[in-house]
Amino acid sequence: MIELRNVSKLFGQTRAVDAISLSVQTGELCVLIGTSGCGKSTTLRMINRLIAHSAGSIRIDGRDIEQIDPQQLRRGIGYAIQNTGLFPHWTVARNIAVVPRLLGWPAARIRRRVEELLHLLDLAPAEFAAKYPSQLSGGQAQRVGVARALAGDPDILLMDEPFGALDPITRESLQNELLRIQAQLRKTIVFVTHDMDEALKLANRIVVMDKGRIVQQDSPQALLAKPANAFVENLLGGQERGLKQAGLLRVATLMQVLTTAAAPLAGPRIKATDNLRQALSLMLWHRCSSLPVVDEQGRQVGVLRLDALLDRPR
């Protein structure tokens, strides 16, 4: 869906992006990560021509973006940023409707789309459609920003640290919302962050950048297993790599299934859908070496033993 070939960007004599090549597949959630000034946001903004690239080529669905009218290009690409960019004097409904209006959609279709997206982002239309941005919490405003980015039903969504300014609880909630929406809609998403935990949670593929270059790109699991160099290893958390890897695996993958004859276990319980990092934390806190595993209805379906965590393959 998106292909960059030997793309560079110069600001005067400064090379912000240096001959990078990257392909993002249809339906993939690709995360660009690195320290401040590494070129990740510049790379994102070159895709929708908010910043012109200095060299190389960028193609979307096989078309060179320089052959596409910039306004037409941007109307076909959703864009969500950290400060939302909502128009303060417009209602939530009007903010979400801005791209469909530019695309010339009929009023009835726009109204249906706004309501659909408000429901999708857990914002009741009757409560939120007529509100103004100043009447929203940070998390609600960010949800509206995501809804606006999705309003024109684009195939591509670009997200530049959209949850970076939020508190940890709201941020986690919106990360879960994004994963839920992505499971339904299967958009092609390029997501910029400086938070490795966020990248590991969201990404199908992580692209690590440093000094304008791509240092390594791979799945979260492969990146944790074999970082290319000390920079990537440190970005992944150094000695905490084991915990971060455990956070990618579900309890169900290592639990021992409970037989019908086995008696239910007592003690702190964990869900089969929780991750192994959460399980290890419970074991350490309660000083136990096994946990009863339950399903979404609270019924015990298995047991997770500490030995299984220690023996898990890397």
Rank of each mutant, 00 (worst) to 15 (best):
L248H: 12
T260Q: 13
V144Q: 03
R45Y: 02
I169V: 15
L86G: 00
D122G: 01
L280W: 10
L306M: 15
S21C: 06
I47D: 00
A230F: 09
V146Y: 03
Q278E: 14
M1R: 11
P264R: 07
Q278P: 01
R241I: 14
L282M: 10
R63F: 12
N229H: 11
R15F: 00
Q184P: 11
H89P: 00
D274H: 03
I47W: 01
A147V: 09
G37C: 03
A93E: 12
L10K: 03
V294R: 00
T253H: 11
T42S: 01
K187A: 08
L309P: 12
A279P: 02
F163K: 10
S134Q: 14
L103N: 10
T84G: 00
P268N: 11
Q135H: 07
V17E: 02
T14W: 04
A272G: 03
R15N: 07
E177P: 05
A262S: 15
G302A: 01
G78Y: 04
Q221D: 15
I33S: 12
T193I: 07
V146A: 06
R113K: 15
F163E: 09
E172F: 06
A124E: 13
D295R: 01
G237M: 06
E198K: 10
I20E: 03
E3T: 14
V144R: 03
R305Y: 13
L158I: 04
I96H: 02
K226V: 13
M209H: 08
L309A: 11
L4K: 08
G76W: 01
T14D: 05
Q72R: 14
D167Y: 11
R15H: 09
G145Q: 02
A183K: 15
V7S: 01
L4N: 04
K244C: 08
L282I: 14
V114D: 09
P125E: 07
Q182C: 14
T193D: 08
Q13N: 13
F87P: 00
R186Y: 10
M209R: 11
V303E: 03
E3F: 12
A141P: 11
R213A: 08
V293C: 08
N204S: 15
R59K: 11
N229Y: 15
V24R: 13
L136I: 11
I58S: 07
T273A: 11
E28K: 12
H89Y: 00
R75W: 07
E198C: 06
E198A: 08
L86R: 00
A149D: 08
A141I: 05
N275C: 12
I214M: 02
V293R: 01
E177D: 14
F231K: 07
R213V: 04
V232K: 10
D69N: 14
G237V: 07
R49S: 04
L258P: 02
N234H: 15
A93Y: 01
K201S: 09
V190F: 13
Q82G: 09
A149M: 05
R112F: 00
E172M: 10
Q13H: 13
L306Q: 12
D167P: 11
L249A: 14
R49H: 04
P70E: 13
L44D: 07
Q297H: 06
E177Q: 14
R74C: 03
S134K: 13
M196H: 00
S21L: 09
Q71Y: 05
I110K: 06
L118T: 08
P88L: 04
P168L: 09
I58H: 09
L224C: 10
H194W: 02
D274N: 05
K226R: 15
